Simulated assay, not measured.
Amino acid sequence: MPRVTVQPAGVQFEVEDGESVAEAAWRQGYVWPTRCWGQADCMSCFTKIVGGELNAIPADENELDAIRLKLAAPLRNDPTVRLGCQLRCTGDALVVEKRGFRVTSAEDNNMVDPAESHSA
């Protein structure tokens, strides 16, 4: 089963076949910030691949269009920037950097803090 490591938290978890990295995080009790719950709409889930990029399944047209049309200009041209809700992987070497990723607490609902911006 594929595995992903999330930095700077240093957390590693399994990703089921066909499951996105964000979906796997939610299923296993982690907060992966979102507003649209996997619809490639809010851009809150964006992440940066920092290692094992060959273990990332290439982005489909839906993800590429969302990044191109909705993500802040400095990020949209970076091929290592992906949407966690769309990012799927193989193998166990994928390493991503995700701000706001953490273990879920009783008060969490996985929504991004309104004060936090996805613009760079």
Rank of each mutant, 00 (worst) to 15 (best):
C89W: 13
L87T: 00
A115S: 08
G51D: 05
T104M: 15
L69R: 15
N77M: 07
E23K: 10
H118T: 11
V103R: 15
T104V: 14
S105F: 04
I57P: 02
D108K: 04
E116S: 12
R88W: 00
D108M: 09
V96N: 02
Q28A: 08
L83S: 00
E14P: 10
P114C: 05
A22W: 01
L64R: 15
L83M: 00
F101E: 05
A40C: 07
E19G: 01
L75E: 09
L54R: 15
P33Q: 08
E14K: 13
R88C: 06
G100S: 09
E53C: 13
L64F: 13
S119L: 15
V112G: 05
P114Q: 08
E23Q: 10
V31G: 03
A106L: 11
E61Y: 10
S117Q: 08
L83Y: 00
R82D: 00
Q39W: 11
W37M: 03
L69V: 15
I49G: 05
E23G: 08
V81H: 02
V50S: 00
D60P: 12
V95L: 15
H118D: 13
R82F: 00
Q86A: 05
T5H: 15
N62H: 14
N110V: 03
A25W: 00
N109F: 02
N55E: 14
R102F: 04
V103W: 14
T34L: 01
R102C: 07
P79R: 09
M111C: 13
E107P: 05
L71W: 02
N55V: 09
W37N: 04
E53L: 15
M43P: 01
Y30H: 07
F46V: 13
E16I: 00
V112N: 13
M111T: 09
E116W: 12
C45Q: 05
P33M: 07
D113I: 00
E107T: 03
